[in-house]
Every structure is written in C-alpha cells, then in structure tokens.
Design a protein around this nucleic acid. Structure first.
Lengths: 206, 206
DNA sequence: TATAAATCGTGATTTTTTTCTTGATTTATT
DNA sequence: AATAAATCAAGAAAAAAATCACGATTTATA
C-alpha cells in the first residue's frame, strides 16, 4: 500500500499529524508550510516536500487544508487499518500501556496481556484479560495476532522473544533495553526509553 | 563536555551499550565491529567510526574491550552525571515511569510527582511523593530541578508546559502527543509513543 | 488596476550519513 | 617461520537528507 516511506519522514508525518489535530480543534482550516516549519524548527521546503509525497497540493498564499492533510497522513500511516496486538509482561509499563486508550484511535488494538506471575493471571486491566504466558501460542493462532508489545524485564527479554517467535509473532515492539536477536522474518522496533532520554540529556545538559 | 554528538550516533551508542551490558553479563571480554554490526543490521565500518568518536581504539583481529567501550559510552552519555527530574501527571504512564527503577542507573533521578487531582495528592509511589501541581514552582526552585517528564493528557499538555516554563523548567521530556510551543531557552524531547508505533507499523504491516 | 507580500513547487546545491575499498596489523594455523 | 584469516583504520565514493534559491501563483492592499 504505502510505498515504504523513510523512517525520518514517517516521524515528521506523526508530528505534522499532531499539529493538524490541534489546528482542527482550534477551528483553523488552513495551515502553511512556514507555520509548521517554525513550530518544528525545520525548513519550510522540507515540509512542502513531505506533503508532496502525500500527493497533497497546497495553494499559494493560503497554504494547505488542515482536514485534507490530516486525512492523508492518517491514510499513509494506516490509522484505519486496525492492527491487533498482545502486551507481553504485565508489569507497570505493560499495565500503563494497556490502559492507554489512545492506541485505539491510532489503529492499534490491544486484545490481551500475558505474564508468568500466577497472581496476575486472570486479572482484568481496562477490559483486557491477563493470561498466563503459556496460553499465548494458542491465542495468537486463534486470533491471528502477530504483533507483541514486549514489556518484560531486560533479563528475560531474549528468552521471551524466542518464545514469541516460536508462537509465530512477526512484529515485536520492544520496550526493554535488550537488543533482541531475531531471525530476518521477524521485525523488531526498539522503544528503549532510557536510550531516548539519554539522547535528550546529551544535547546540552551535560 | 561531550562535543554535541549527532542524534543518530547517540541513538546507536545506546544500542551498543545494551549489547555491552549483555556481553559483560555473559563474561565475554572483547567484541568486534562485525559482530555488533550484524546484530544491529548496519555496516561494520559504521560501528568503527562511532567508536573512533569515543576515542576507543580496537585491536586488529581481536576487537574492542567490552568494559572499556561500556565505560566510554557511559561517560559520553553522562550516566554518572546524575540529573534530578519531576514527573508531571500521575496517570498510568506517570506512575509506570515513577516505578521504573532503571532510570536511576542511567543517571536519571525522579524526585517527585505532580498532579492536579486532590485524590492523588500525598500518595506515595515507589517512595516518591505526589504533590499538587501548585507546589511545583517552589519545589523546583528549592531543589534546583529543571527537568520535567510530562505525562498529562494531550488536552492539557500546552497549558501545563506553559506553567512549567514559568517555573523555570528548562528541559521537557514530552510523553504527550502534543507538539509543544516553547521559547528557545527550553528544550523539548518528544517521546510520542503512538508516533513511534506508527513508524514501526508502516514499515510493512500495511 | 497595479503593487506588494506570502506562499507554493521544484530544481540545484550543500551537508550529512552511510557504504565501499584498500592497506596495515594481529592472531591462529600449518 | 610462513601463510591465512580476521579485524581495525581511514580515505574515497555513494547515497540520503536538508537547505537554498527562484520563478509562479494567489491574495491583500494601495
């Protein structure tokens, strides 16, 4: 569908999207590339080039239609294309993500959580049940789920990932700091919160 | 101190660091650039160039000392340089982050949480107290805190950010999807979980 | 209606990042 | 001791990304 947009551009698209949401809420119907550029601290021609990629034409002296931009960004990023996923690891972070309702409107549908702690099993979080991890392969197959959000402790990350791979999980959104070893058929997306912070902190706090 | 290392390189440094931790735990003392490169799916000369930046010489046919690499990455990223921070917004995500103990070993020290919900005020989370948001300016000044982790709902993000800026907060780690408007003296680091997922999902799920 | 100002679209240029290549060095092996 | 294999180092080349520059268009204003 989408012609493999570079990561950097996708990242900017998500930022543009947030701004569109804000403008829509404020009842502003058009937006210009210099406005966006200034907000994000980038060049305005960059913004226009990105929008070109979305086949979204602007109007000189006026700008772009906010609603159209929002729609085409959502189309490009696949908001409507709902994706089912499991959360693996029902610790603080896993629970927080399970309660994070915005996932839904962005096309991510959390179906259930998994953990190996018997105390947590069968609890409900935000209408999603926590299952024992041993139930995952069966449920993944029955429900056709191939996305897992990994929120276990670092020490168990690789072991659990191996188990997920055996269960035919194809996409792992990795919130652990571990760098997972996976076969080429499996895609990993590293969130790495601490790494992210360090990038920030390094900028000039030190 | 650190000579403003580009974001991309910093990001790779955090990944290298994770691998070093893993190798150390496994008792492996040396590591080669091709090993790392293969693991991360990048070119090995890239890895060597990054290490060059750290002034970390390798040894032909052997590789680099894991311990040395880990130390110099930590030095470059400022692990030892402890930074105090507040969490603003004691919702699910804020609480999860407050309970996330790994922050400490990476040089981030959460001192307290803030919220405007009277029910949450005075509760303790992982030995950190939740204060009413109105207490923030005073505490920030007294404790010399200028870093805030923003985990409020998107709708309140800008308003709270403005308040933080008035309170002399200089660094905002923004977990809300809002694109904050801040003066040039304030630095924002956008986490944007959904945006991150969309980048991942776009890769080829659609 | 003419002029000015803002903005788009896009090709050219520059900068940054990544990959390629080659030579030197070290260790293991015969 | 000679040879082979793995690895580092570093400059060259290629690719990707960002910025610049400018003509064309549209709207507002004099």
């Amino acid at each position: 569908m989408s012609k493999n947009i570079p990561e950097k551009i996708t990242n900017r698209l998500t930022l543009y999207h947030s701004i569109m949401v804000e403008y829509l809420e404020a009842g502003i119907e058009t937006i210009s590339s210099p406005q966006i550029a200034q907000r994000l601290g980038i060049d305005d021609s960059q913004v226009r080039k990105d929008f070109k990629l979305l086949n979204n034409a602007g109007k000189c002296r006026v700008g772009y239609m906010v609603r159209d931009l929002k729609d085409s960004i959502e189309k490009t990023l696949g908001f409507a294309h709902a994706k089912d996923a499991f959360i693996v690891g029902a610790g603080h972070l896993g629970l927080a993500l399970a309660k994070y309702d915005s996932f839904n409107s962005y096309g991510l549908n959390i179906l259930a959580l998994f953990d190996n702690d018997p105390q947590k099993v069968d609890m409900q979080v935000n209408n999603k049940q926590i299952f024992h991890i041993s139930k995952l392969p069966n449920l993944a197959e029955r429900l056709g789920v191939d996305i897992a959000i990994l929120t276990v402790p670092r020490q168990n990350a690789q072991q659990v990932a191996d188990f997920l791979i055996d269960s035919n999980i194809k996409y792992i959104w990795n919130f652990t700091p571990a760098v997972l070893k996976v076969p080429p058929t499996v895609k990993v997306w590293n969130e790495n919160l601490m790494g992210s912070f360090l990038q920030f902190a390094c900028k000039d706090i030190i």
